[in-house]
C-alpha cells in the first residue's frame, strides 16, 4: 500500500453504555478511495465525524498525514474537506458567495479562478449567480461537492454524496470524484448505500456492522468472501444480520 494518508487505530466511540464504534482500525494509502459500507446505524457517519473532529473518540487514535488529529486538528483540516448529504450551505446566499466564504476559510489561493474551476467540474457554472436555496437537490449536492473540492483536499470524506440523486446526476458526481482522484491524487473515504457507486469508485471496501468491521477487501473480494452474487446482496445479508457467524470479524 502507498504511504498511508489516514490511519485509524482501535477507534471506539461510546455514548453511555452504547458503543457506536467499537475497535475499528484501518488505513488508506495516498490516492486510494476506500468505501465504508454498512446499514443505517453501523457506525459509518460516527467514524467520519470523529475524523472531522466533530466527535471526540472514547478510545483509539486517528492519524492524518502522519500527525495526530487531536493534537493538530486545524492544521489537518486545512488539508482535507468533506461533503455530506446531511449538511447544506446557507440557502440565502448566492452560489458564488457561499463558495467565496468557504474559499476564504480554507485560504484557497486565486479563489475566483478556483471557484470557476470547481463549478465547471461539477457542470454547474451556469448556477454561479443563483440563490443556493433555490437549487434542486441534485444541484445542491453538486454545490456541496464544489465546496468540498475548493481547497484541493489531500483527504476527502464523502458521506453519501449521491443520496437522493437521479442516475444521471449520480453518474456525473461519480465521474467528478474519479477525475479529482486522477488529477489531484486525492485520497478519499466514501460512504454510500448505492452499491453501484461503490463498485465503480472504490478501490477497497470496509463492511461495518454494529460498530465493528466485518470485512475488508476489494469489492470483488468481498463478494467472493460472502459467496454472494453482488455487493448489493452482501449488503442486504449483512444489514439483515443473516449468517454473520460465517463472516470472519477482522482481528
Amino acid at each position: 500500500m502507498p504511504d498511508p494518508v489516514l490511519q485509524v487505530t482501535d477507534l471506539v466511540k461510546r455514548f453511555g453504555d452504547f458503543a457506536a464504534v467499537n475497535g475499528v482500525s484501518f488505513e488508506i494509502g495516498k490516492g486510494q478511495i476506500l468505501g465504508l459500507l454498512g446499514a443505517n446505524g453501523a457506525g459509518k457517519t460516527t467514524v467520519i465525524n470523529m475524523m472531522l473532529g466533530l466527535i471526540t473518540p472514547s478510545e483509539g487514535r486517528i492519524q492524518v498525514f502522519g500527525k495526530d488529529l487531536a493534537a493538530h486538528r486545524i492544521e489537518i483540516l486545512r488539508r482535507m474537506n468533506f461533503c455530506s448529504t446531511y449538511t447544506q450551505l446557507p440557502g440565502n446566499l448566492l452560489v458564488s458567495q457561499n463558495l467565496k466564504v468557504f474559499g476564504l476559510l480554507y485560504r484557497v489561493p486565486d479563489l475566483e479562478r478556483r471557484i470557476d474551476e470547481v463549478l465547471e467540474l461539477l457542470e454547474i457554472s451556469h448556477l454561479k449567480k443563483r440563490v443556493s436555496g433555490h437549487l434542486s437537490a441534485g444541484e445542491s449536492t453538486r454545490l456541496n461537492l464544489c465546496k468540498a473540492l475548493l481547497n484541493r483536499p489531500e483527504l476527502l470524506l464523502l458521506d453519501e454524496p449521491t443520496a437522493s440523486l437521479d442516475p444521471d446526476i449520480a453518474d456525473k458526481v461519480r465521474k467528478a470524484v474519479k477525475r479529482v482522484r486522477e488529477e489531484d491524487g486525492a485520497t478519499m473515504l466514501y460512504t454510500s448505500h448505492n452499491m453501484r457507486d461503490v463498485e465503480e469508485v472504490c478501490d477497497q471496501v470496509i463492511f461495518m456492522h454494529k460498530g465493528k468491521i466485518l470485512h475488508f477487501g476489494t469489492p470483488a473480494e468481498i463478494v467472493a468472501h460472502f459467496q454472494e452474487k453482488s455487493l448489493e446482496d452482501v449488503f442486504i445479508r449483512v444489514a439483515r444480520g443473516g449468517d454473520l457467524e460465517t463472516a470472519k470479524l477482522v482481528d
Binding site: G53, L77, Q88, L89, F102, L105
Partner: peptide, 12 residues
C-alpha cells in the same frame, strides 16, 4: 441553515 457541521469541520 444546516451549515453548522460545515463550519465546525472547517479549519476554524
Amino acid at each position: 441553515s444546516r451549515n453548522l457541521l460545515n463550519i465546525f469541520a472547517a479549519p476554524v
